[in-house]
């Protein structure tokens, strides 16, 4: 897993997002045991307390659960993972829509541009006709 951090948000919230992506994309499959806090912190290059905090928040949300001696595991609840996936997708869409609106596009134009891009990728780059 590749960890990347931006400057404008707390590190623990970014960890939460990235672990969620790992769970949703199957990097951490349902029911699988997560590496220890120390190993995850070393891998991500972050403070172990910050990693601990992120995992506790994920635990509170139910995406991971801990078993007293065995460690932390990814939930087996597929519906919950699906909900997390939707949540992440909505964030991407909101960011995208905001950027497009900022460029001056209307909703219909955005939708048709999206259709073009996803349906006719082979026709190379079509001018946006601004």
């Amino acid at each position: 897993m590749k960890w990347q951090f931006s400057n404008d948000a707390p590190i623990y919230t970014q960890l939460i997002q990235q672990i969620k992506v790992g769970i949703v994309s199957g990097g951490f499959p349902p029911g699988e045991r997560l590496p220890s806090v120390r190993d995850l912190a070393t891998e991500a290059g972050v403070n172990p307390n910050t990693m601990q905090r992120a995992l506790m928040e994920l635990e509170r949300d139910g995406l991971v659960y801990s078993q007293r001696t065995a460690g932390r595991f990814v939930t087996e609840d597929k519906a919950m993972i699906e909900t997390a996936k939707r949540g992440l997708a909505e964030r991407h869409i909101k960011t995208f829509l905001a950027a497009m609106t900022n460029l001056g596009f209307q909703r219909e134009e955005i939708v048709s541009l999206l259709r073009q891009e996803s349906g006719e990728e082979e026709t190379a780059h079509v001018g946006s006709g601004m």
Partner: peptide, 15 residues
């Protein structure tokens, strides 16, 4: 704390 600075100021400690 590092995350308190990032949360309250919206910038990294470096910034």
């Amino acid at each position: 704390s590092v995350d308190q600075i990032r949360e309250e100021k919206g910038m990294s400690v470096d910034e």
